[in-house]
């Protein structure tokens, strides 16, 4: 019966064969890509292992030795921890200040750039491309590059880190902000224009209220990122808790209780900021 039907419809059979052939080919390509990907990954790891100072297998066995050394010493001196954590608060405040100030400056910059680079809103529509390129360039600079060059000119301290993070934030937020602003309703802007509002008034009264929740939510996310960046930049060379961590690490044995205290303070801060920021982001994006 089945045979008879199929014979009666050789077309259907050919289609079936073709379909299976296509599926097979697709699977084969998929498998090939997977094999290539995995071999690139494995050979990459072998190359990285080869160029590393210590080998992978030596390292993986020793991975616990440094943390356990640190923790055991800190545990022996655990009575010092609260005092040391308290002593780390001023440098923590500096790190948080770097992150907050640079997020604010970056968000203000990003907002202006976004409005200038969004089609339909731009003050000078011909310069949209230029402002986009500026944002791309700002975003492409790793913070460390700007920070290290500024440290040479301005001397060590929180300001080079702040400027470096702010510039990068300006570029990164500018792009995200502009994507939000593209979806803004233009009717309020046109309404304001019809009563003779200037460009700044149109933006502040017509666009910003529409985009504010999303912009704020992106800015909060950026603040989470910037806290980490500011700790890392401190470690590489300017101010804040990262610098404290570096000096106490370089001291080595005898100051491991301080290392643990700084680590705890940083960890708690990051967790709190993450939780608070994600609570507010949820609220902002979902309405209530």
């Amino acid at each position: 019966m089945t045979d008879a039907t199929l014979n009666a419809a050789p077309n259907l059979r050919r289609m079936q064969d073709n379909y299976l052939e296509l599926v097979r080919r697709k699977r084969m390509y998929g498998g090939l890509i997977l094999i290539i990907f995995i071999s690139v990954l494995v050979s990459g790891f072998m190359l990285a292992d080869h160029r590393n100072a210590g080998g992978f297998w030596d390292g993986i066995l020793n991975i616990g030795s440094f943390p356990s050394e640190v923790v055991s010493e800190a545990w022996a001196n655990r009575a010092n921890l609260p005092g040391l954590m308290w002593a780390a608060i001023p440098s923590l405040i500096e790190t948080v200040n770097i992150a907050l100030a640079s997020t604010l400056v970056g968000a203000l910059m990003g907002g202006v750039f976004a409005l200038l680079a969004t089609r339909g809103l731009a003050r000078w529509p011909r310069l949209i491309g230029l402002f986009r390129r500026v944002m791309d360039t700002l975003r492409a600079f790793p913070e460390i590059v700007i920070a290290l060059v500024l440290i040479y000119i301005l001397g060590p301290g929180p300001v080079p880190a702040m400027i470096a993070i702010a510039l990068h934030t300006g570029g990164a937020l500018g792009k995200l902000f502009s994507e939000v602003a593209e979806n803004a309703d233009l009717k309020p802007v046109e309404g304001l224009q019809s009563v003779g509002a200037s460009w700044i008034q149109r933006m502040v009264l017509g666009v910003v209220p529409q985009v504010a929740p999303n912009w704020l939510s992106y800015a909060l996310l950026r603040f989470e990122i910037n806290i980490r960046a500011s700790a890392i930049l401190g470690f590489v060379g300017s101010g804040g808790i990262g610098y404290e961590l570096k000096t106490s690490m370089q001291w080595g044995q005898g100051k491991y209780d301080q290392v643990v205290a700084i680590f705890l303070v940083l960890f708690i801060t990051i967790v709190i900021v993450d939780q608070v920021s994600s609570y507010f982001r949820d609220k902002l994006v979902k309405g209530h």
């Binding site: 790891f45 190359l47 990285a48 292992d49 160029r51 590393n52 100072a53 210590g54 080998g55 992978f56 030596d58 390292g59 993986i60 020793n62 991975i63 030795s65 440094f66 943390p67 980490r228 700790a231 890392i232 470690f235 990262g242 961590l245 690490m249 680590f263 940083l266 960890f267 990051i270 967790v271 993450d274």
Partner: peptide
């Protein structure tokens, strides 16, 4: 996941560079 995220790349980098020494493997 929360712990790994909270400890932060800086600390992981320090711990790993103690165990593996300088080089691209440590960074990866």
């Amino acid at each position: 996941f929360d712990f790994v995220r909270g400890v932060d790349g800086l600390i992981w980098t320090i711990i790993l560079s103690r165990a593996f020494g300088p080089g691209p493997m440590t960074g990866a």
